[in-house]
Amino acid sequence: MNIKLGSIFVIGLSATYILGMFSTNLKKEIVKTYYETEYSNYVFKCDQVMREHFVAKQMVATSPNDDNVSLLVQAEIGLIDCQDYDLLRKKLLSYGLEESDLSEMGLKAIELKAKDIRKVVEIHEIRYD
């Protein structure tokens, strides 16, 4: 009787753990799917303004004049897009996602453009062997 009860307890505990794990992962997947487009958009925008900020800094370094300084100020204002990205990151972390999940979402966003290459290769049946 005691062995039977014990088994039921262990099975119940395991089931609860598995369900718990499953529900946590399910929640994560739902959050990831829901925010995927928005996150990828912010990843692109932040990347874009950071690149432009770097170029603007280099322009001031190589040709320090009023126009280039003005462009650098504008590029700094443009960095506000990275605040949106940071804010969404914090939000997603608070929803239970981990850094590794965000990294995965970021990689997916970056690789979106790489799909073009795959598509071209498929369409033209380019073979390398």
Binding site: Q48, L71, Q74, A75, I77, G78, I80
Partner: peptide, 12 residues
């Protein structure tokens, strides 16, 4: 407005 003064570079 932030685009105008920022990455849009309109204010240049």
């Amino acid at each position: 407005g932030l685009i105008f003064f920022g990455k849009g570079k309109c204010v240049s």
